[in-house]
Amino acid sequence: MRLISLLNPKLILFEDKALTKEQIIRRMLDKICEMFELINCTDKLMQKVLERESETATVYPTGMAIPHIRMDGLDDTIIAISIPRHPIKDKDTEVKIYILILTDKNISSLYLNVVASFMRISKDEALYNSLLNAKDVHSFMNYIEQANIKDKDEVTVSDIMTTEPPVINENETIKALAEMMKEHHLYYIPVVNNNGDWVGDVNLLHYFQVSVPDYMQMMNNVNFLHSFEPFEHLYKQEDNVLVKQVMSKPERLLHPDYTIIEAVFEMVKQKKQTFSVIQDNKVVGIVTAMDIYTKVVRA
């Protein structure tokens, strides 16, 4: 199904005035309530959307926000779009476009495909900018029409992954690794070689592992050690141990075209919550179990 077929020009709003997030959502809901006979209209819907928003943020780094609710007995999927000419600060991101989706509790795949379609739009820089700068609803719809955005059969890893993640060279020391993790607030970094090819992953546990030498890991427990200073060894070794000495490689990799179920399968099977997404030996993204939870399961 083409995305354009699901969109209604009357539910696409360009907001020239500076508005708040709540005002924007309310205006979209008002429009929806004008056009559709819904059981609970604006106030109750507003409350539900805001409740859902407070549970899980739906703002993506590209400046797209997709607030949504699932309702009993709606038996439909309604999409409203709002483009504030004055971007709105939401959770450290400047939101340039709001896509409000109302869907039935039982309609899952269509909803996910719609989200995936918008995510793809947000990653296509030229199209995304054209849409944000569209003069009016007509040209907005034209851009979507020309792009011929279709539902994919399934949502894939590329739809939900974080693109262009920071990477670290395998020959860096673990001290550099620690500094990078601290600077970027990361607990997981893909490792690349001098050619930029992916060679493994490191996380905080790999770093901590240096403080617990191999012989200690072989012991039943270390509760008898009162005077042992666990990080003494780590501090001594920080400049000597290289990332490639501590990194690990998952049994199998995730590819951007993998379906969500494939990704979940690998996560559960390998007991690993974060994966580098690899295409042609290059890191194209990172996907976490939380991404799947917030963007798919609880989306």
Partner: peptide
């Protein structure tokens, strides 16, 4: 002294 500080009673799990 560090060896003598080990609490061996904790070792029988």
């Amino acid at each position: 002294a560090r060896i003598m500080e080990y609490n061996d009673k904790m070792l029988i799990t």
